[in-house]
Simulated assay, not measured.
Amino acid sequence: MTLGIRYHFDVTYQLEKLKDYGEYIESNLKQEMNKIEDSLKELDEDEADEFVEFYYDDIAHFRDEFPRLMRNSQFTTIYSFLESKMLDLCEKYEQDLKLSEITGKGIVKAQIYLKKVIKIDFPDHAKEWQYIKKSNKVRNCIVHANGDVSKLSESDQRKLINVVNDLEHISINKQRHLILDEKFCFNFINITENFLETIFKSVKK
């Protein structure tokens, strides 16, 4: 089933822009690290040690801090996009029972409304939805604790560690911060695109 030009503009095109943005940022981060590595190649061992000591903060920024901040920001942007499109779909096909009358928040609220009120064949067991539910815990840690796992309750820490172990391209470093690698956001964009296409087509049936 073809979803039409409106879907392409509202969903596909927006996700393509997010993907282009991610590629632009990752490319610039790599360029900066390449400059540093090229400078080191021209130095002998003692000079290289002095260089690293002098420019350590800059190296740490481009190697660790900037990628972490950028990827966390991009991931939460993609997640917010997904959530907004699910809620928009609920509002577009709103029934006598209003969306505002449903308990819950975000994607869970949208899931309940799409299943129970609009009565679509919601893909509860699809790998994309399972991935999204797990990613919700990643999102919450980033938004509410700036990605610092140690700030979560012990129960939430255990749940998040299980999620990290289940998902690819994500880890927890020695400082107990979530680390998304360069593929995580692109993978989440693909998951989001496949999932939204599925539920939009279900509503159209």
Rank of each mutant, 00 (worst) to 15 (best):
I5W: 07
H8S: 13
H8W: 10
F9K: 09
V11K: 11
T12Q: 13
Y13F: 10
Q14N: 05
L15N: 14
L15K: 10
Y21H: 09
G22N: 15
E23G: 04
E23Y: 13
S27V: 01
S27I: 03
N28V: 04
L29I: 10
L29H: 13
K30T: 14
Q31M: 13
E32I: 15
E32G: 06
K35P: 00
E37D: 08
E37V: 15
D38E: 13
K41I: 12
E45S: 12
E47L: 07
E50V: 04
V52K: 15
F54L: 12
D57Q: 07
D58P: 10
A60G: 02
H61E: 13
D64G: 00
D64E: 11
F66S: 05
F66M: 10
P67E: 00
P67M: 03
P67S: 05
L69R: 08
M70I: 07
N72G: 14
Q74A: 09
F75K: 06
F75G: 06
T76E: 05
T76Y: 14
T77G: 09
T77F: 09
T77I: 09
I78A: 08
S80Y: 02
S80N: 10
S80L: 07
S80T: 13
L82M: 08
S84T: 08
K85E: 15
L89C: 09
L89W: 04
L89Q: 01
E91T: 00
K92M: 12
Y93G: 02
E94F: 13
D96V: 09
L97D: 05
G104A: 01
I107G: 07
K109I: 00
Q111C: 00
Q111V: 00
Q111A: 09
I112P: 00
V117M: 12
V117Y: 10
K119I: 02
F122E: 07
F122T: 04
H125M: 02
A126L: 02
K127P: 03
E128F: 03
W129E: 04
Q130T: 11
Q130M: 01
I132D: 08
K134G: 04
N136P: 00
N136V: 05
K137W: 13
V138F: 04
R139F: 12
N140C: 09
N140R: 01
C141S: 11
H144I: 15
L152G: 14
S153V: 03
D156V: 06
D156F: 08
R158E: 14
K159G: 01
L160F: 06
D166C: 03
I170W: 09
S171H: 06
S171P: 00
I179M: 05
L180M: 03
D181F: 02
E182V: 08
E182I: 12
K183P: 13
K183T: 01
C185W: 10
F186I: 11
F188L: 04
I189P: 03
I191K: 01
V203I: 06
K204R: 10
